[in-house]
Design a protein around this nucleic acid. Structure first.
Length: 432
RNA sequence: GUGACCGUAGCUCAAUUGGUAAGAGCAUUGGACUGUGGAUCCAAUGGUUGGGGGUUCAAGUCCCCUCGGUCACCCCA
């Protein structure tokens, strides 16, 4: 171990075949559901101009303040590895004049994000998100669609034990009046709040809701609630969204203290929490960002989106023992009895593959016994023996690894016969 | 960025108060069974004990630094 000079950088890791296959599966399901809801794939660069994230995510957020992977390229431009997906998508939206397309424009993405943080359970420096954005509609129905999409995806994967939290942050107008009231309420408690919250009092008041200090929480919970201060428009939006979710049988919990750490959220915010993830308990979350596109230089255009953390999803799925179908194993192994029949064996191997039969053979000159052992480890259904006796008769000996029965099959008939045998076996189970 | 705990073969773990030449199981490879798997048995491969420095006659074991891991805080996916 000490010999290995190179290790994956702190907070990153290799995703080995076993896990990679699971990811392929959950991505596949995601794509199915996105297609069902008519969301189109988009792939944006892993890095962007730093300025985009500062403007998009918000100067005062933790992401911008301390979590960005920022570097200079050879021309001295400041670039940043993307810490989240929405800013890039809005940038692409503006860059390609997507406002010319029919609204709402619906996009999804799957890819890695980067945040410079101390790793812990459910948190690393490189992590993947599956996310979706719907741009151009202010209808509560699109909020409902986005949330349904997210919940349906998790449900489709088989997750059960999660909670959907819902809140409205209001719009800039009503938020302002709420902030005033909250400020007034909190002022007398200044001496009792934790130092962080005292700081938040003057910098970014709403961030106070992120505090986990028991005393601060107690004070907050007895204070004003943002939903009581929503303007007429925001309130009816929120009510309509709730009605739609209820109609679809989606259970949610109003969480008046759900603030979320990105400055751009307006009106709807939501988060899916898992009881199994330790301190980092959000599997995914999202919200409406009606001011973001204008902030980044476009016409005033509303939008809403969510992101799911792939690693957290997988961690949760592990606890719930979610069944993830295993990728197919090779079905046939070629057992080479004598070395000088290598060419013949290779030919049969390729013939099988040409016929779409997944096949494998030995490439290390192993003894026949070791070859069969290997075949067993690979879990193939059949082993074909290629030996002098068989050659002479123009046949291949086929061993059924389950029953141990062997049968000689004419070479001309091999593919047809194997396909038939395999389809019989496949008829039963296909999972593990 | 802060704190706590941890770091011995590919994996899971041993190694008396610092004391011979760091062991075992599993995995891998070969063999017992010279044309045949899963069981069993035998053998081999595999470690400058994360790295560096220090204390000591002697360090896997003690001290310092560093890298990494784990968990928590901050915050979020």
């Amino acid at each position: 171990m000490g010999r290995n000079k190179f290790k994956a950088p702190k907070g990153t890791r290799d995703i080995l075949p076993e896990e990679a296959k699971k990811r392929e599966y959950i991505e596949e399901i995601a794509k199915e559901i996105f297609q069902l809801y008519n969301y189109q794939p988009i792939i944006t660069p892993l890095f962007e101009k730093t300025e985009l994230f500062i403007r998009g995510i918000g100067e005062s957020t933790d992401i911008v303040q301390k979590e960005m992977y920022t570097f200079q390229d050879k021309k001295g431009r400041s670039l940043t590895l993307r810490p989240e997906g929405t800013a890039s998508i809005v940038r692409a939206f503006l860059e390609h004049n997507f406002n010319q397309k029919p609204f709402p424009l619906k996009l999804f993405y799957i890819g890695p994000m980067y945040r410079f943080e101390r790793p812990q359970a459910g948190r690393s420096r490189e992590f993947w998100q599956i996310g979706a954005e719907a741009i151009g509609s202010i209808e509560p129905a699109i909020d409902a669609e986005i949330i349904c999409l997210m919940i349906e995806y998790l449900t489709r994967l088989g997750l059960k034990d999660f909670t959907l939290l819902l809140n409205s942050m209001g719009c800039p107008k009503c938020r302002l009046s709420f902030i005033k009231v909250l400020e007034k309420y909190l002022h007398p408690f200044k001496g009792e709040l934790c130092p962080d919250c005292v700081r938040r009092l003057s910098t970014n008041l709403l961030r106070i809701y992120d505090c986990k200090n028991k005393n601060c929480l107690k004070i907050l919970r007895q204070g004003p609630i943002i939903s009581h201060f929503l303007c007429e428009e925001c309130l009816s939006h929120f009510k309509e969204l709730q009605a739609l979710l209820t109609q679809e049988g989606i259970h949610f919990q109003i969480e008046p203290f759900l603030a979320r750490g990105l400055d751009y959220y307006t009106k709807t915010t939501f988060e899916v929490r898992s009881p199994y993830l330790g301190a980092q308990n959000a599997i995914g979350g999202g919200g409406r960002y009606d001011g973001l596109i204008e902030e980044l230089g476009g016409d005033s255009t509303p939008g809403i989106g969510f992101a799911i953390g792939v690693e957290r999803l997988l961690l949760h799925a592990e606890v719930e023992k979610i069944k993830i179908p295993q990728a197919a194993k090779p079905k046939v192994f070629i057992g080479l009895v004598e070395r000088d029949l290598k060419r013949e064996a290779f030919k049969i191997l390729q013939d099988l593959r040409d016929a779409s039969i997944s096949a494998e053979m030995d490439f290390l000159g192993r003894s026949l016994k070791s070859q069969i052992r290997l075949a067993d480890k690979l879990g193939v259904s059949f082993v074909l023996f290629i030996g002098p006796d068989e050659m002479e008769k123009g046949v291949v000996k086929v061993r059924d690894m389950e029953s141990g029965l062997e049968e000689e099959i004419k070479k001309d008939n091999l593919i047809f016969s194997l396909k038939k045998k395999l389809s019989v076996k496949d008829g039963g189970n296909n999972e593990s």
